[in-house]
Amino acid sequence: MCKKKIAVIGVGNILMGDEGVGVEVVRRLERLKYLGEVELIDAGTAFLDVVTGLRSFEKVIIIDAVHGGEAAGTVYRFKLDDVEGDKPAVSLHDFGVIESIRLERLIAELPKEIVFYGVEPQIIKLAMQLSPTVEGKVDYVVQKIIDELIASGVQVQR
């Protein structure tokens, strides 16, 4: 199978405040032009439906709200290997992003590199906008992803 180069995937629910930060980052990235094989994906609330497409890419960047225990607005960058062995939360209410990727690994070869960008949320409740704290970090994350794309050989035009 011929693999495309990079996918940038925003995950989250835009109706639930900071939960939607990943989708907002992808929406801003959609305003730029790219030379090179990049696919921007707004996975919304349906990451489980997107995960089966990961096998078509060499590298995947996933952006989501992440509860990592630091102050609201903290930006994290980590790889799948960094959370290997992490026991998911006791609750069973969701096929989380990481659990979905592990499920996908059962039936397909994963991309060589999976990078996560996470933003610690402040407010997760019914709202169609981000909190000011998280909103203030969106452009920073966008820039980090542009840097990451450039480093992978993609030309990005503003």
Binding site: M16, G69, V83, D86, D94
Partner: peptide, 10 residues
């Protein structure tokens, strides 16, 4: 539909 990644161990 809250899909936040929650890291407990790492």
């Amino acid at each position: 539909s809250v899909h936040t990644i929650s890291i407990k161990g790492a």
